[in-house]
Design a protein around this nucleic acid. Sequence first.
DNA 1: CCGGTTCAAATCCGGCCGTCCCGACCAATT
DNA 2: AATTGGTCGGGACGGCCGGATTTGAACCGG
Lengths: 136, 136
Amino acid sequence: MPKGRVMRRNRHPRENVARVEIPDKRYFRIGEVSELAETKPYVLRYWETEFPLLKPTKSPTGHRLYRREDVEMVLAIKRLLYEQGFTIEGARKRLAEEVNGGRTMAPPAAARLETSPLRAIQRELEAILTLLSRQC
Amino acid sequence: MPKGRVMRRNRHPRENVARVEIPDKRYFRIGEVSELAETKPYVLRYWETEFPLLKPTKSPTGHRLYRREDVEMVLAIKRLLYEQGFTIEGARKRLAEEVNGGRTMAPPAAARLETSPLRAIQRELEAILTLLSRQC
DNA sequence: CCGGTTCAAATCCGGCCGTCCCGACCAATT
DNA sequence: AATTGGTCGGGACGGCCGGATTTGAACCGG
């Protein structure tokens, strides 16, 4: 039997991304996010290579673990690309601006945070999470 | 004789489109607009086929006559495409919205992404507690 | 230990967005 | 009128963006 024919590109699913409900879970696997966002897993992986801000943590075996914020980032990206009509580069720039422009803190603090103990702690926590997720 | 070589794409000229001075003339020909906007004439013609709002009048002999508003439209399109990073379709949609909405709607409400590092760490801690409370 | 899921990497490809060419026409200058 | 250079529309061409598919192995819940 002939392989499935070239899939039609479906760039603009009608779904309003803004009103997707994210289930009350802590971690999501790529397949779950894929269904939530109605976006193929390989697209999620591809976006990861294009958007530095999309960085789901990974299990020790390399499987992606999306947290809520990661899922929200996915939805934000999808909105920019499919509803607003940005190119990938445009969306990337826009997201960077939003993160920077979002005055969630005074600039000096933000700059120092990169190398601060806080950051180190965050890394440690991520590592611990990774280890824990192996056993449980 | 070999054909002229493929011209390198130059998608993101550094020039800030916003500060281009439009000379005090009533009509501009395509070559003049081309220089003002640093955009090849064939691109201007192409944009005309893509943007219904870009409609320079034409002389009886078919030559384009751009008025100020047409030139401004060209600059706006260029800004959307090259500075903001919209696709043609996205730019078209955005321009239509601007015309309809009237007032230059500010950058759309920033996606409410929670990016505070403290908040992120708090989430990590919650995650750890959850993991620990389970019998591993 | 089995069936469905996920992985990374390589490869492939449709179509967006120009880019070039062509022969004809127009406008200004000489 | 002739010359020079800008402009016309239409068609062919093409780089590369943004996925889409495949492969073969590893993973994981039940």
